[in-house]
Computed example of a mutant assay.
Amino acid sequence: MARQTERHPLISEAPGTQRTVIFHRYGAGTPGKKAYIQAALHADETPAMAAAHHLLQKLEDADKKGLIKGEIVVVPYANPIGLDQFSSDVLLGRLHTGGEGNFNRSWYDLTEMTKDRLQGRLGKDAAENVDIIRSAMQEAINEVVPVSEFDSLRKLLVGEAAKADFVFDLHCDDDSLPYLYISSLNWPDCQDFAADFGSYAVMMAENSGGNSFDEVYTRPWAELGRLYPDHPIPQATMSMTVELRGRPDVSDEIGAKDATALFNFLVRRGLVEGSAPPLPKALCDATGTNACEIITSPGAGFVTYCLELGSVVKKGQQIATLIDPTAEDPTEARTPICAGTDGIFFTAKQHKAVKPGMVVAKVAGTVALKDGLLLED
């Protein structure tokens, strides 16, 4: 079954211009499971595009051999708006420069959009209820009327991903080891991918706040289950944000390695025929996203680090130093930056110049530290 490549135009916001998004679809119409994999919703996170590129090479080979047994949609770049946001040769793809904020925040609330449509439609069969809910989700999405280019991008991506059993949103951090954000509803079901991917941290929450893309597809099943307790509603979608190290970590070798982990997952779930290799030993267990300490700079200057990424730290242990080049007394220019929890130091800052409140490190701990919005913006 040949690959289908689709070009989806977005709303044009300037005369003579129109951006498009490409979907590569394998196994179109195949009964069974469906996977949706998108790269670089934060458009400056190039490792995601490298992983998608190498995954497509593997899927091309599998498709030619007739090994595709489910439907697999790969979006090699999910955000052409952000890809066009260069300033002085620097790509600024995390925030919408037109004022619509973080590209990975404020996505649809499919529970709210769907719940009233399910009145009188659900039954006693869990599998049938999944189909009914997915149909209701599509009805709601189809009724959205985009009024901006970004609105049309939201509708396009959610409309496709909401049909999938498995959703992978590929990202990266600044300077980082590989890690995952997942729903607590999907653990330990995704433990095999975490091990194969070599994740140094797996952070889970049912609702981390901010309506990030991956949670659009996991939250409704539990939330609708609580709204309709007399009807069996399983956790029908596994979705995760995959953080592919740091922005500079782009190479054919790394991209191929990450693509192999994704491909092995597709094999293990039966979307590609074959046998996956034995799983490596997991590097970590899952912990709550609310136990991840996001450490910010206490002032302006530049930072140096005294520990390597992957170091196990104790509360109060120094991770970095803030150096103030404007200090009148140079002997007082250094301020230690310390961990506030026990855990794994897994993210640092690539560019060392900082201002007050800028994120300089993350530590994946095990003790809850906060409530509400659990992610940095």
Rank of each mutant, 00 (worst) to 15 (best):
H231P: 02
E253A: 10
G210F: 15
L156T: 05
D165H: 12
D214F: 14
A222Q: 13
F193K: 08
P234N: 06
S148R: 14
A261S: 13
Q235L: 06
L271H: 04
E160C: 07
S199K: 03
Y181S: 05
F213I: 00
S152K: 05
Q191V: 04
D165S: 05
M240P: 02
D214P: 02
V216S: 02
L271D: 03
S239P: 00
D165E: 07
F263I: 00
R154T: 00
C190M: 15
G255P: 02
D196E: 13
T218G: 08
S184L: 08
S208P: 15
A205N: 07
P234R: 06
E160F: 08
G270H: 08
Y228Q: 00
T241Y: 08
Q191A: 15
R154D: 00
T237K: 07
E253C: 00
Y181C: 12
F166V: 03
D230N: 10
V202I: 15
E149A: 06
S199A: 15
S152N: 01
F166E: 02
V167M: 11
L170I: 03
P178G: 09
Q235N: 12
A194R: 11
L153W: 09
M203I: 04
M204F: 09
L156N: 03
E149S: 11
I182A: 13
L244H: 14
E223C: 07
E149D: 05
Y228H: 01
A261Y: 06
N211D: 12
V158Q: 06
H171R: 10
R268P: 03
M203A: 13
V250P: 04
P248A: 05
G274Y: 08
D151V: 01
M238Y: 12
L185Y: 02
I182W: 04
G270M: 08
R268W: 10
P232K: 02
T241R: 11
E243V: 11
N186K: 02
F213T: 00
E253G: 00
A201V: 05
V167C: 07
M240A: 13
K163E: 09
L156W: 08
V250Q: 10
N186S: 15
A161L: 04
P229N: 07
P229G: 09
D192Q: 14
D249W: 01
F166P: 00
F150E: 10
I233E: 13
K155A: 02
P188F: 09
K257T: 09
R269W: 14
A201L: 05
G274K: 10
R154W: 09
D192K: 14
F193D: 01
V147D: 09
P232L: 04
T241W: 07
Q235C: 04
L224D: 02
G210D: 12
